[in-house]
Design a protein around this nucleic acid. Sequence first.
RNA 1: GCCGGUGUGGCGGAAUGGUAGACGCAGGGGAUUCAAAAUCCCCCGAUGGCAACAUCGUGUCGGUUCGAGUCCGACCACCGGUACCA
Length: 848
Amino acid sequence: MSRLTPSEIEPKWQAAWDAAGVFTATPDPAKQKYYVLEMFPYPSGRIHMGHVRNYTMGDVIARYKSSCGFSVLHPMGWDAFGMPAENAAMATGGHPKTWTYNNIAEMRAQMKPLGLSIDWSREFATCDPEYYGQQQAMFIDFLEKGLVYRKNAIVNWDPVDMTVLANEQVEAGRGWRSGALVERKELTQWFFKITDHADELLSAIDDLKDWPEKVRLMQANWIGKSRGLQFAFERTDGGAPIEVYTTRPDTLLGASFVGISPGHPIAKAMAEDNPEVAAFIAEATKGGTTEEALETAPKLGFDTGLKVKHPLDPNWELPVWIANFILMDYGTGAIFACPAHDQRDLDFCRKYDLPVVDTFFALDDDTPVANEAFVPPKTEKVKWVNHFAGLDVATGQEAIDATVDFAEAAGWGQGKTQFRLRDWGLSRQRYWGCPIPVVHCETCGVVPEKKENLPIALPDDVSFDVPGNPLDRHPTWRDCACPACGAPAKRETDTMDTFVDSSWYFARFTAPRAETPTDADEVGYWMNVDQYIGGIEHAILHLLYSRFFARAMHICGHLPDTAKEPFDALFTQGMVTHEIYQTRDGNGRPIYHLPEDVDLDSATVKATGEAVEIIPSAKMSKSKKNVVDPLAIIDAFGADTARWFVMSDSPPERDVEWTAAGAEAAFKHLSRVYRLAAEAAESTAPAHPDEDVALARAAARAIVDVTAGIEGFAFNTSVAKLYAFTSAVQKSKAGAAAKQEAMRTMAKLMQPMTPHLAEEMWHLLGGEGLVAQAVWPTADPALLVEDTVTLPIQINGKRRGELSVAKDADKASIEAAVLATEVVQKALDGGQPRKLIVVPGRIVNVVV
RNA sequence: GCCGGUGUGGCGGAAUGGUAGACGCAGGGGAUUCAAAAUCCCCCGAUGGCAACAUCGUGUCGGUUCGAGUCCGACCACCGGUACCA
């Protein structure tokens, strides 16, 4: 009996595709183009099942679209700058460049056997000087157009290692290596002016029709447009008034204090001659800079002794506190607190014994606020205690609008639109990133490098034995001539955030070797990305930055107006998860075990016999050892099995659990399909009209269902339908010709998912050329029509029987047939139904 | 903390507001075989019942509807993001 041998057929067909140049993307004016892109990987060194799943999804789409007659672009590259390379260099003494390029070579070698329909001729890594040199050229363009500027911003500072830390390198407020308490330090840094585009980035979300609603929501919330009131509190000491911004001006009569950020100019000025204030600010600025750390840190306050006058009542004085939870970045760095209607303010006031005044109540509840702030949705009507704008019962939003109008009319405040979105800080005090191409000259100041001097390449002769940025301490790299005056000057040593690298790689793929960032013709043909596929973890930052970057590139002439939204459709896939196997050491600390080292029947470690704890599935990670190496699966069963398995079972947007049993089952199924193809090819069975038609019907059904699954990103249901079709072929007594035709359809339908097996079947069954280049099948509508349909009969909403009627039976005849059935007669017990609901082709419900 | 998501048999999951559990895994039974592997067939939510069948059942509680896994409200658990992980 013929057996499926992936190790023979997979390399064979990969070679055939290469020889025919099937996946080389070439602009073809006669064809519609289709650009499918999966988020490119970070070259960690080994691919994991998540990669296999992600790239197989993209491959299914790419191959399907190609079969449908599109000219397809499906490229691959490497998001190659970033911290792990420097960490590896510090840990093992190698060089980030060697480490990165070695990893790329290894991962490419692991990806090739998957048989992905990728145009490898377009491959690049973001750490290639050819790529980041173009990025530097664009930075200079951005500078000219006023899209980049410098300002001070806060970083995590490790006072022992004397180095800037990433948020990830801060653990519980301490530096991960030194263990020192992290401080917040101000540095001058480079920023992209993304906030200039905030409103447009927000309103354009409406047009991203083929993006998941959740991503659009997350982006909108992140941009966070709000209308509020800006006004000033007069100080009783005659000092400069304190400008505050608030989104809840309607609660002004519930104000209990004015709070300023520890970074506020008033706080800074006081700290200069008041050691107590200086000490408080030092205390309040300890810890990491993440929003989470700031929001969950214990509330700390310091009473400055300053007093301000309430704008509505000159005799009402409020104290001014410095509070650690007020951000200098948002609004004016100063607020008024209304504890009754803000939990954070309430916690603060209870801690420091400040007054709490209710300004509104729920319509049916007058209980004063105790330790839980009353914060109803702004759309809910509430009852105002006394509102200066004359409101009684109104929603929060109505009250906010009325207050803004009132303040503007009275002249003491102004309505202002505010965004939560902050400018994009791109400076990194690190080596392994794209150097920012500017020069610091004593006479000319900050000057962009001349474009003909690009790329400003990273020096290779650096070491990582000392913490900090090696570019800073390089003996000669910083030395250069000022591009403006020619005098000796120093290079900028900050490199760019790696999000910059990934914010335009999709455009570069359209002309990866161009001498300019993009090529107008290529970009014009290939952009936009028709289908972008990646993890939900990128829902906000990467996608928002890319949307901004496309706009900025358009302003500089690198992208057409039509590419300002670069991703037409977005799909976010889930993670691949696996159970975790753990034992514990003498101190109760967990020890993790690889799946292959565990005997699952007895739940013990194979080597020692020790019992393992099985922890429910979590994202595969090296540290938890719950990883399955795709190469092991490919070795054992072949790439088609790995691809088939990651496409089956779980819907693509959800996490998928990898189980060894599932992989084996996938292989069994593919073997069965192969056997059916071989049997069909050798069959000499005579035609059998009824069976032949029945099989053709099954094939037509499969074509419709599998196509719908692919179009709807429900590959798991396509797989289920292919199982059903396989079963139909297997049971069929159709003649040889009909079976061969059915199996050729099978090959076409399976080609996107299991391309090697599909080619082999196609070849066996005498298909012409490569199935990878065959046209996607369409179903004969006549074969899809069914004559009768079975309707379930519900009585009072519960299923009690069923009824077989003609497909086109009208309502009246169905009603009559239903009433005649035994179950309904019994239920009616001689009476009349109260109601009879007939949904043609669906269901019948009798209410008695 | 805040924003977003998810929750259905022993397991992965299916289901335009219309027969809950398609398809697959695991499990049970059988066929084939000297035996096995491979393959094929049947059963498979829980409880009660010989059976027909009945009752319950989609995280929890409540609501809308002739009818709710699906829509609405509250809650619980878990996951992603939280601007220097990528």
